[in-house]
Amino acid sequence: MAFRRRNKSYPFFSQEFLIQNHADIVFSLVIFILIGLMFEATAKTAILFIQPQYNVTTQSPEGEVTFYHYGWKDSATILFYFFIAIILHAVVQEYLLDRVRMPHIITGSQRSLTRSVALLQKVNRRLHLSKSKNTKFNESGQLCVFHLVSSVWSFYVLLTEGYLLHPSSLWENYPHVHLRFQVKFFYLTQMAYWLHALPELYFQKVRKEEISRQLQYICLYLLHISAAYLLNLSRVGLVLLFLQYVSELGFHIARLLYFTDESHQKMFDLWAVSFVFTRMATLTLMFLSVGFGLGRSENQGLDLEMGNFNTVLIRMIVLLLVCFTQSWLLWKFIRFQLRRWREFRLEQAVRKKTATKQPLRALKRDSLGHHENGVLKAENGASPRMKKLKSP
C-alpha cells in the first residue's frame, strides 16, 4: 500500500525516507495492533488501543446503560487513533488535494471515477501557487474536511444527548463524570487529531515562517479540549467546539475559494460575521455555565476521587483562560480586517490613478493630429516627416 507517489528512492532510516513513507509505516503499526485481536494472549492488550476503557454499567428505567469515565488507559486509545489520523491525513493529501492542485498526474483510468472529481480538477487546473500559498492550501484543505466532520458529529451528539433543548443540563448535576460512549469517543478522537498535527508539521515540510502560527492554534485546541475533558466540563466543551468548528469551516472554505479565484471575497465577509458571533456566544455561555451555573451549585469543593473541581479558584482560572483566548483571537481578527481594509484602499487609489492617466494620454494623442486612411495627418493637413532608421 503506497500513499505517496515515489519519484525517487531514498536510503533506509534517512529523513527523506521517513517523510516519504511515514503513512505506510504507521499503517503497518495499525495492522500489527489489529492482528493482536486475533490471538487470545494479546487480545486484552490490543483492545486497550481500539476500544475506550473504564466502562460502568448502571440500571435505569430504560434498562442497563453503559457509561464511561477517564483514566490513564485512555492514552493507549488516543495513540491508536493518533495513528489513524496520520493515515487519513495522507489519504486526503494524496487522493484529494494533490489531485486537485496537480491534475496532470492522474491517469486515464482514474479520470473516469466520478464526474465531480473531474469537474473539480477542471476548475482548479489554473492553480499556480507559491510555496506559502501551497502550504495554506494544504492546511485549509485538511482542516476543511476535519471541521466539516467534527461539526456534524458534535451537532449530532448535542442533539441526541439533549443538551441543545435543555441548556441548564450543561451545569446541572456537576460533576459530569460518567460519559456516554459517543461523548467519550468524540473527545478521544479530537485529542488524537490535534496531537497528530504536531508531527505533520515535519512530515509536510511546513515552512519555518508558518510553524509558529500553526503551533499556536494546535496547542490552544489541545489545551482547551484536554481541560474540558479532565475537569469534567465535557458538556460545555461540546457546545463550544461545535461553535468553533462551524466558524473555522467557513474560514477555510473562504480561503480555498480565494486560492481558486482571488475575486471571491464575499465568503470572508460571511465568515467575519460568524467569527464575531462565535466569540460573543462563547463568552456568554462560559459566564452563564461556569460563572453563574457552577457558582450557585450546592456541590462546592475539590474532590479528586469524585471528579469535582467546582472551586472558586478553578472556575476563575477557566474563565480567565477562555477570556484571554477569545480576546487574543479578536485582536488578531481586528488586525486582519484592518490589513484587508488598507489593501483595499490602496488598490482603489491605484485604480483611480490609472483611470486619470488614460484620458490624459488620449488627449495628447489627439492634439498631435489625426489619422486619415491609415496615415497620421498633422493639424495643417501635412504628413509628418519620416525619421530615418539607424543602422544597427
Rank of each mutant, 00 (worst) to 15 (best):
N134C: 07
T135C: 12
K136V: 10
F137P: 01
E139N: 13
E139F: 09
Q142K: 09
Q142Y: 14
C144L: 15
C144Y: 02
C144D: 00
V145W: 11
V145P: 04
H147K: 02
S150G: 04
S151N: 03
S154P: 02
F155M: 12
F155S: 06
F155A: 15
F155W: 12
L158P: 09
L159I: 05
L159T: 14
G162C: 04
L164I: 15
L165A: 14
L165M: 11
H166G: 01
P167S: 07
L170K: 01
L170T: 06
W171M: 09
W171T: 09
W171R: 00
E172N: 10
E172H: 07
N173I: 07
Y174D: 07
H176D: 04
V177R: 15
V177M: 06
Q182K: 09
V183I: 12
F186I: 03
F186C: 05
Y187S: 09
Y187T: 06
T189A: 10
Y193A: 03
Y193V: 02
W194S: 05
L195P: 00
L198I: 15
E200M: 14
E200D: 13
L201E: 13
Y202G: 01
V206Y: 00
E209L: 07
E209Q: 10
E209F: 05
I211F: 11
I211A: 08
I211K: 14
R213Q: 13
Q214T: 06
L215T: 00
Q216G: 08
Y217F: 11
I218P: 07
C219S: 09
C219G: 06
L220H: 11
L220I: 13
L220M: 12
Y221W: 09
L222W: 01
H224N: 12
Y229A: 03
L230I: 15
L231W: 03
N232S: 07
S234M: 02
S234W: 07
V236L: 14
V236H: 04
L238W: 03
V239E: 02
L243T: 08
L243K: 03
